[in-house]
Write a protein that binds this DNA or RNA. Sequence first.
DNA 1: AACCAGGTCATGA
DNA 2: TCATGACATGGT
Length: 279
Amino acid sequence: MQSLELESDQPFSLHHTLNCGQVFRWDFREGWWHGIVGDRALKIRQDGDTLTWNGADEEFIRAYFQLDLDLPKITGSFDRDPFIHAAIGRCRGLRLIRQPRWECTISYICATNSNIPMIRKRIELLARALGTKFTFEGKPYFGFPSPDAIAGCCNATLTECKMGYRASYVLDTACRLARVNDWERGISESQYDDARRTLMQLKGIGPKAADCILLFAFQKFEAFPIDVWIRRIMQEQYLNGSAASRTLCRDAEIQKFARDHFGPYCGYAQEYLYGARLG
DNA sequence: AACCAGGTCATGA
DNA sequence: TCATGACATGGT
């Protein structure tokens, strides 16, 4: 077991960070958050300014939870209206996570047109079917399947994982990326627009999934994923006033507004809006 | 029983 | 470039 003391001027909330819908393989049980990240399992808890965990070194924890970033500076940069101000207050300490790139990519293909419990079930079934089994604190876990593991399976296997029509998307993307050496580097080194276009050439990745992947796995904070919730919030709160009188506007317009209004960290702002969405 | 969920794709104008 | 409908699945 290891621990660290958070800096007093750098807010962090494990609960908001893991509960805001950006990751799908974390569970809160008996006072601990239990998670599977790529091929490792870990558990972690927060008591005030103390983080205690098992299953990773401190370097991993700091990187994974973005403890190296100046959060007040980030939230301050987009704290520009009463609505986002309230969301920042409600989700105080929420940090974006640095997700494994491959896992994040497949996860958000699995996420389309589904609710969060269904996404979680799908990914768990996928890991059980094709992931590597290992033991952590005496219990069995399944890591996230490698590109080769998915690329080598058949459509029926993925259908058994409740992928529905996404099965062929997952398989196709796995086959493509499995043959490319270090595909992440090209995305990582590209500007946001180019990276987004490249990702969208993969089956099952449209504008929304691409933005989630760029935001959560490539730290391109200018990405502003628009799902049904964010679309609703943006139209009601920022674009056209009341729900009754609003006229619909395109996602591209919403995105432009978001980047102009919230600035270069608008992706971070998006996650605060999403995290605070249930009132 | 329709409708919805962290949407995307194929089609047709 | 844009609307429109289909699409697997499970919950409400």
